[in-house]
C-alpha cells in the first residue's frame, strides 16, 4: 500500500515536470502581462527610459470608454451584430459542407483539398486585399459576379412580398458567401472529424429499424456530433471577436499605436469581459442540449 502511494506521488511529480515549461510561460507571458494590463487600465501611463511611469487614475478610462468616447460603443454594437449574423451562418454552412464531404463520391479527395485550401492562405492582410480588389474593383466585369446576383435576387424577393428584414438578411448571406467559405475551414475540419467518429454500427442499426436518411441525420448524427457543435460555436465566437478585421480590435490597436495605453487597456478589458459573458451565456444555453455518448 505504501509503495503504491510513493509511485503515485512520483507520477504526480513527473506530471508537474511535463507541464513546467508551460507553467513558466503562463506566469511570464500571461499572468504578469494580464495583471499589468489591468493596472494600466486603472492609471495614467507614460513611457520613460528604463520603464513606465504609472499614476493611479481610478475608473477614469473605463468611464471615458463608455461615456465620452464616440467610437467605442458603435464599434461594440456593430461587432455584436456581426456576431449574431455570422455565427449561425458559419455553423450551418460548415456542418452542411462537412456532411457533403463525408459522403462517398468520386473526386472526394480533390474536393477536400480545395476546401482546406483557404485554411492555408487566409491571412487578414490577404483577405482584405482580395475583398478590396477583386470584389469591388472593376478591372474586368467578371469581378462583380456576386454583387449582381444578390442585387437582382433582393428585387425578386421584395416583389414576392417578403418582409424587408428577411430580404436584407438573405442578401447579406449571399454577399458574405466569400467570407464564409474562406473563414470556415477550421469548422469544416472539426465537423468532418466528428462525423468520422460516429460509429458505423449506428447507421446499420438505423437502417435495420427503417429510419430514413432525414431521421438518421436529426436523431443520430446531430446528437452524436453535438459536443463538436458546442466547440465550433465557441471557436467561431472567439475567432470572430479576436480577428484583426473586427472593428473594436482594430480601434483598440490603433489607440495603442497612438500611445493611449491606458485607454486601450481599459477598452480591451471591457471587451474581454463582454466576450467572457457572451461565451458563458452561449455555453450555458447550448451545453444543456449537448449529448455525451459515454456518460
Amino acid at each position: 500500500m505504501k509503495r503504491r502511494k510513493t509511485l503515485e506521488r512520483r507520477r504526480a511529480f513527473t506530471g508537474y515536470t511535463f507541464i513546467l515549461p508551460w507553467l513558466i510561460g503562463l506566469l511570464m507571458f500571461f499572468i504578469v502581462p494580464i495583471c499589468t494590463s489591468f493596472s494600466y487600465a486603472l492609471s495614467h501611463v507614460s513611457i520613460v527610459r528604463g520603464g513606465v511611469d504609472i499614476r493611479f487614475a481610478g475608473l477614469l478610462y473605463f468611464k471615458n470608454a463608455f461615456f465620452s468616447d464616440e467610437k467605442f460603443l458603435p464599434y461594440l454594437a456593430e461587432s455584436l451584430k456581426n456576431l449574431c449574423v455570422e455565427v449561425p451562418i458559419i455553423i450551418i454552412y460548415s456542418l452542411f459542407i462537412a456532411v457533403m464531404l463525408n459522403a462517398k463520391f468520386k473526386g472526394r479527395g480533390v474536393m477536400r483539398s480545395i476546401f482546406f485550401l483557404p485554411l492555408m492562405l487566409s491571412s487578414s492582410v490577404l483577405l482584405s486585399i482580395i475583398n478590396d480588389q477583386s470584389y469591388s474593383g472593376s478591372v474586368s466585369d467578371t469581378s462583380s459576379v456576386f454583387m449582381v446576383s444578390s442585387f437582382s435576387m433582393s428585387d425578386i424577393l421584395v416583389q414576392a412580398g417578403l418582409p424587408d428584414k428577411v430580404v436584407g438578411y438573405l442578401t447579406m448571406v449571399i454577399d458574405s458567401i466569400f467570407n464564409m467559405t474562406w473563414q470556415s475551414g477550421v469548422q469544416i475540419i472539426l465537423f468532418l472529424a466528428a462525423l468520422q467518429s460516429v460509429p458505423p454500427a449506428l447507421k446499420e442499426a438505423a437502417d435495420v429499424e427503417g429510419a430514413t436518411a432525414w431521421e438518421y441525420f436529426w436523431k443520430i448524427i446531430i446528437p452524436m456530433i453535438s459536443p463538436m457543435i458546442l466547440v465550433n460555436i465557441v471557436f467561431t465566437i472567439i475567432d470572430n471577436f479576436t480577428s484583426y478585421t473586427n472593428g473594436v480590435i482594430s480601434y483598440i490597436t490603433s489607440e495603442a499605436g497612438n500611445l493611449h495605453y491606458s485607454f486601450s487597456s481599459a477598452m480591451t478589458w471591457i471587451y474581454f469581459a463582454l466576450i467572457s459573458l457572451i461565451l458563458l451565456i452561449v455555453v450555458g444555453l447550448v451545453s444543456k442540449k449537448v449529448f455525451y455518448m459515454n456518460d
Partner: peptide, 24 residues
C-alpha cells in the same frame, strides 16, 4: 484547473496582453 486555464488562454485576445509584453 490548470487545464481549464490553458483553454482560457485561447479566449483572451492578444490585444489584452500585447502592450505590457511590448514594454517588457
Amino acid at each position: 484547473i490548470l487545464f481549464a486555464i490553458a483553454l482560457f488562454t485561447i479566449i483572451v485576445p492578444a490585444q489584452t496582453t500585447i502592450i505590457p509584453m511590448f514594454i517588457n
